[in-house]
Design a protein around this nucleic acid. Structure first.
Length: 618
DNA sequence: CTAGGGTTAG
């Protein structure tokens, strides 16, 4: 098969690629050798490159041996290929050994090691090599700088990044596209968005990569809406979209629950043929799950041919948030059956699912399997889920025992889980005692977090200890702790309508309030009585009027006013829905024959005909 | 033979 002659280097290259692709399979490699096919300056580097790409270290080692045997191992072309192969296979000691024993004075070998170190997360090694190159006066080029900048960014070494920047200004490379992009990304990842923007504005060509760096860092360091503003700016500057940037924007759309934009991005991806890009599929799945369209999320999942851990995890979490914790567990079992490896976050989702579906026994056994079976040490989030699961199902002693078993100090997340879990079963005095103790600790370690005050105050009001309720409220006031104001919003025709408790700013306020009154009147006829137990759920956001005009009720009433008859009403709230609104809105779905999807800070409530997907357990 | 951006978080 090798008895062809090649006239063009292009043919030679495709032949070499073909050779490499068949020979990285060991058996075929041996057949290749048995055929008397040549191992030379052209074939060895090409096969080595494939070994690196496929992380086939054993074949790489054989080739190294053959190179030594044929005396080709002193050739600089071969040496740099070997260093690349070892680096990509994470066999760094071998790569360093070759580098140190042959002392190549070309940049390629050094670059290969810097790039691989940076990609493998060995950032300080990458920077060390960079400094060494600089000291030896080796040429630093358009391959060296991006990786060094990348490692500086990952270590949050802004000063180092700035030093590299100043070296760059003298190198003549600063106008190079990859280098400009790496600089923008370094400043952006370090949270120095103004510096990032300055570099960006001075670039000769601002391509989609630079925009993506700005977008994702804005989402992380500023806000998701700042990120979407940048996206609009990008669209108006006619830059070509690609799958990376769409995945990033989808993630902000998901957080902001702007379903219309998400759908448009989905359509664009299909038109542009990006649908086979895994990260984009993962982002789409998450976007649909987070906007309450769990059926669409499942459709996306079914179209992904090779799901990775992120895909499985996104589906597990999405199902759990949408009240389908049993399905999360089935998906997890399928994930294991099909050979995917769960990670730290998978278990957060799985245990969250168990806790919301009340699956005590499966939850316990999944938790116990984490370390022995999957080699993942449970972290505070996992303990928090388990404590929540146990406390909510009334096993408060067991929750406390589990907490005492932790190898590290429980953090605020864990104490909050215990406190909120206790509010479900207050009939035993023990639950109250544990809740008070947890709150006391939280008031010390997180004195400015409003959530523990509100949780404890709700517990007191549930057992009608009004004096204690007043004490907590006074304590909050004295400490200047205020809760994030509650608000609900709804998207209609691409416009987001926001409601706060008892606010009168919406242009259709009169109709909305009339509709709330009508709603409350009609559900009262079916026997609804306001629950006063959660009067203080929204401490700080509401007046003395109490429960009637909470933001979620206003939003649902608005939906009844403006949406066509029978249309699903999709509402989002930034805080947890209060118990009274939950009861009232369930009845509204029954009386009006409408479906309501209400997403609160924790989960989705798919309400229909008086029943909620959360099983009144959220 | 070496290069920049992305997706999951009770």
């Amino acid at each position: 098969m090798l008895a062809f002659s090649f006239n063009h280097s292009h043919h030679l290259r495709s032949h070499l690629l073909f050779t490499a692709s068949i020979t990285t399979n060991s058996t075929q490699f041996h057949r290749f050798l048995a055929n008397g096919s040549p191992l030379n300056l052209y074939t060895i580097p090409t096969i080595l490159a494939s070994c690196g790409a496929q992380r086939n270290l054993s074949l790489g080692l054989q080739l190294h041996a053959l190179a030594i045997h044929t005396g080709l191992d002193s050739n600089s072309f071969i040496l740099s290929s070997l260093i690349t192969m070892y680096s990509k296979c994470s066999h760094f000691s071998a790569a360093y050994h070759i580098l140190n024993s042959t002392n190549p004075n070309d940049s390629i070998s050094w670059n290969a090691l810097i790039v691989s170190s940076s990609r493998s997360g060995l950032h300080s090694d990458a920077l060390h090599l960079f400094v060494k190159m600089h000291h030896r006066a080796l040429p630093l080029d358009e391959f060296t700088f991006p990786s060094a900048l990348n490692s500086a960014a990952h270590l949050s070494l802004v000063l180092t990044g700035q030093t590299i920047h100043s070296l760059l200004l003298r190198s003549g490379f600063q106008r190079h596209a990859h280098i400009g992009n790496a600089l923008v990304d370094m400043y952006a990842k370090s949270g120095e968005l103004h510096s990032a923007r300055n570099v960006f504005d001075e670039m000769p060509h601002r391509d989609v990569v630079a925009w993506t760096s700005l977008l994702t860092s804005s989402a992380r360091h500023v806000s998701h809406s700042a990120s979407l503003d940048l996206f609009l700016e990008m669209l108006s500057s006619s830059v070509n979209l690609d799958a990376f940037v769409i995945a990033a924007v989808l993630s902000s759309s998901a957080e902001l629950t702007v379903l219309e934009l998400g759908r448009q991005l989905h359509a664009t991806s299909v038109k542009r043929g990006f649908h086979s890009f895994l990260s984009l599929g993962n982002a789409l799945l998450t976007m649909y799950a987070k906007t309450g369209c769990i059926d669409d999320a499942e459709l996306i999942f079914d179209l992904i041919p090779y799901p990775d851990a992120i895909t499985w995890t996104a589906l597990i979490i999405g199902l759990a948030q949408n009240g389908r914790g049993h399905d999360s567990v089935h998906v997890y079992d399928k994930m294991i059956r099909t050979g995917s490896k769960p990670d730290y976050i998978t278990f957060i989702g799985l245990l969250f699912a168990c806790s919301h579906a009340g699956l005590v026994e499966p939850g316990r056994s999944y938790f116990e399997s984490m370390e022995p079976v999957h080699g993942i040490e449970p972290g505070p989030e996992h303990y928090a889920c388990m404590i929540d699961l146990l406390a909510r199902s009334g096993k408060i002693e067991e929750a406390v025992r589990l907490m005492n078993r932790m190898r590290f100090e429980p953090d605020a997340t864990v104490w909050k889980a215990l406190l909120s879990g206790c509010r479900v079963h207050l009939n035993s005095g023990f639950a109250l005692q544990v809740a008070e103790r947890a709150a006391e600790i939280l008031f010390k370690i997180a004195p400015n977090d409003a959530v523990p005050y509100v949780l404890l105050s709700n517990i007191y009001s549930k057992i009608r200890r009004w004096g204690d309720v007043a004490k907590i409220r006074a304590l909050m006031k004295a400490r200047g702790v205020s809760k994030e104001p509650g608000c609900s919003w709804m998207e209609v025709g691409g416009v987001v309508h926001v409601f706060h408790v008892e606010d009168h700013v919406h242009p259709r306020t009169a109709e909305i309030y009339a509709k709330v009154d009508e709603m409350m009147g009609r559900i009262r006829e079916t026997g609804y009585v306001a629950e006063t137990g959660n009067v203080l759920q929204d401490v700080g956001e509401e007046g003395e009027m109490g429960l009637a005009y909470h933001s979620e009720k206003l939003a649902v009433a608005f939906g009844l006013v403006v949406l066509p008859r029978g249309a699903l009403i999709r509402v989002f709230k930034n805080l947890r829905v209060c118990g009274d609104c939950h009861t009232a809105l369930k009845l509204v779905t029954k009386v009006y024959g409408r479906k309501v999807v209400l997403r609160d800070a924790n989960v989705f409530h798919h309400m229909e005909n008086g029943v909620c997907s959360c099983g009144d357990y959220w």
